[in-house]
Simulated assay, not measured.
Amino acid sequence: MSIHSIKRDQCHLAWDKSIEPVLWIQSGETVTFDCLDASNGQILPSSNSATIGTLVFSQLDQVCGPIYVEGALPGDTLQVDVIKLETADWGWTGIIPGFGLLADEFVKPDLKIWKLVRSNTGDDYGYAWFDEAKGIKIPLKPFMGEMGVARGVEGQFSTIPPYNTGGNLDTKYLYTGSQLFLPIETEGALFSIGDGHAAQGDGGTAIETPMKVTVRLTVRKDRPYTRTPHFLFQNPKAVTPQASSSEEFYCVTGVNADIREATRAAARNMIEFLGVEHGLSRTEAYMLCSVTADLRMLEVVGVVYIKSWILAHVLIQVRTFRWTCQTTWCVGLCLTVLIWVNLQALQIGMMIPRSIFQRI
């Protein structure tokens, strides 16, 4: 099967089905992308906090592509197999005024440049020291923040938020070995990718880094229920410590600026998946979701203006190890938090362990 390559300068800054493809491939072929970081090369290893003030925001979050996949038609699904991810030896995390959940409290720009100590031993990708003196060490788990296909409507759409067709998913479970399923809305799918992350929590800010990524793109005609991004992944210790090392999880998503509607959409999408793939009635699927499915707040994307009040129930667990600091966010019914946030889009995921099905 052919392996194709896309260079850093073969990129664009909006989702737009009128953009000319940079490559035409057959379904099932493999493409390697050499992607700049989310700053589009504006931040360098030598940069400091002052660089944040000079960023040209219209140049952020570029994506490489688009790729035209032969045979892809509206109503089909594009399966994206993540084959290989390779970070640079550095990355950055920034506080950008006006962005983030606590933008009103963190008003000064700041920038941290990370040295990434890479490894290629099994599932060990290496680490980065946050503060060596304090013993805070971050394990690397690279993934691509942006993966999507062109929307079916006319016009240019920002690469900042997620859409039903993908985009800025910022989902940490899309690491090597995972499969992403995207609903196709335009002929050829027009797939693009970018925004390499060396590590990130659910809904958080990442260690941004240039990335080389290899994916296989396959058109699926047998998944009419793929209406939002779905994905399949293993190594679920980040999901539940009780899971076995080889257990697979299937996740559907709901994308909406309202947390309740995003959650309801995720539930409906899981119910439809269980009905089609496992022959369950809607009632059976609904009950199964409440018994075994987990909800995750995968991403919160902010904009400049306040859009809404959100009353959310959030369980926050912080686990600190001797050499590793790890924070896990999950949706629960433990602590009521009133959040006044500038929301453009919020992505809720509902995932289910495949091991409960004896015939897969």
Rank of each mutant, 00 (worst) to 15 (best):
S18A: 15
P21R: 11
L36N: 04
Q42P: 05
S46A: 14
T51G: 07
I52P: 06
F57Q: 09
Y68I: 01
P74N: 11
V80G: 08
I83H: 03
K84W: 03
T87Q: 09
W92L: 04
P97K: 03
P97Q: 03
G98D: 14
L101Y: 14
K108Y: 10
Y125S: 00
G126Q: 14
D131H: 12
D131G: 11
G148Y: 10
R151M: 15
G155L: 03
Y163N: 10
N164Q: 06
G166H: 01
N168V: 03
L169I: 04
L169Y: 00
D170M: 06
Q179T: 08
Q179C: 07
L180Q: 06
L182I: 03
A189N: 15
G196L: 02
G196I: 01
H197L: 05
A198F: 01
A198Y: 01
D202I: 14
E208N: 12
T209N: 02
V215M: 04
V219F: 14
P224Q: 02
P236T: 11
K237A: 10
A238R: 01
S246L: 15
E248C: 11
V252P: 05
R260W: 04
R260L: 12
E261W: 15
A267T: 11
I271A: 06
F273I: 03
H278L: 06
T283E: 11
V291G: 00
L295A: 15
L298W: 02
G302I: 02
I306D: 14
S308Y: 08
V318Q: 07
R322L: 05
R322C: 04
R322A: 09
W323V: 03
T324F: 11
T324M: 13
T328A: 06
G332D: 14
T336F: 07
V337D: 10
M350D: 05
Q358P: 04
